[in-house]
Amino acid sequence: MNKARHNPLNSAAAHGALILYTLIALFPVFVILINSFKTRKAIFAEPLAPPLGDAFSLIGYQTVMKQGDFFLYFQNSFIVTVASLFFILLFGAMAAFALSEYRFRGNMLMGLYLALGIMIPIRIGTVAILELMVQTGLINTLLALILVYTAQGLPLAVFILSEFMRQVSDDLKNAGRIDGMSEYAIFFKLVLPLVRPAMATVAVFNMIPIWNDLWFPLILAPGESTKTLTLGSQVFIGQFVTDWNAVLSALSLAILPVLVLYVIFSRQLIRGITSGAVK
């Protein structure tokens, strides 16, 4: 087949370019990770050497563990991310089902209304969100963050999930109705399992921005007990800015969970991006 599109010189050049860019992409992460395991002297003497022999030290991690409450921050980030994803998926799927399954007056309008938020960033409304959270006493609670991220994630979730739910066969649902299943049972038992791949896509799309967000934790939940990992590492690094061991270790601790999640979900994420993009 198409010989014209394949010659060894081109392929070497392609690999060269990709390897070069891969190095550019990974180099900073690599430098941070290896230096977090070194003594202060080794960090400055030979920043690119591996942390072996005399150079090896865990002093940075010890400082971080002593000074910062990283376990609590991690727990907060975890609760916020998981709860937000749960509500985005549940509420988003329910609304998407209503919009794609039933014909009712205002269906189209409701779809447009929910789609507004895809393009308009929720941050624009921050001033009033802060007031709302102060008035309702939710300031400095994880619930405030969960509500904001749920609202932020819903528009795209409804949009993607309703596209997928339109493809679920009507015969299947009607068969369920003839068997006397309620609409709720049809949704939970028939439709949800069938759109699981789409739900996973929505989940990975939302997971990273929620986990990494700095703006809303800074404004809505800056208290010590509610700091997320992103905000916690920001504050910690700001305080320890001259302690290079501690800063490098804190950065590594913040990188690792995301990296682990990425290794687990990267196929799903990439498939999600590449399948959603064509539309």
């Binding site: 409304g125 009033a128 609202a151």
Partner: peptide
């Protein structure tokens, strides 16, 4: 089916906007 999404979205996003 619609209420939870519409309520959260309206209360936390559109209304504050």
């Amino acid at each position: 089916f619609l209420a939870p999404a519409v309520i959260v979205y309206t209360a936390v996003m559109i209304w504050p906007l």
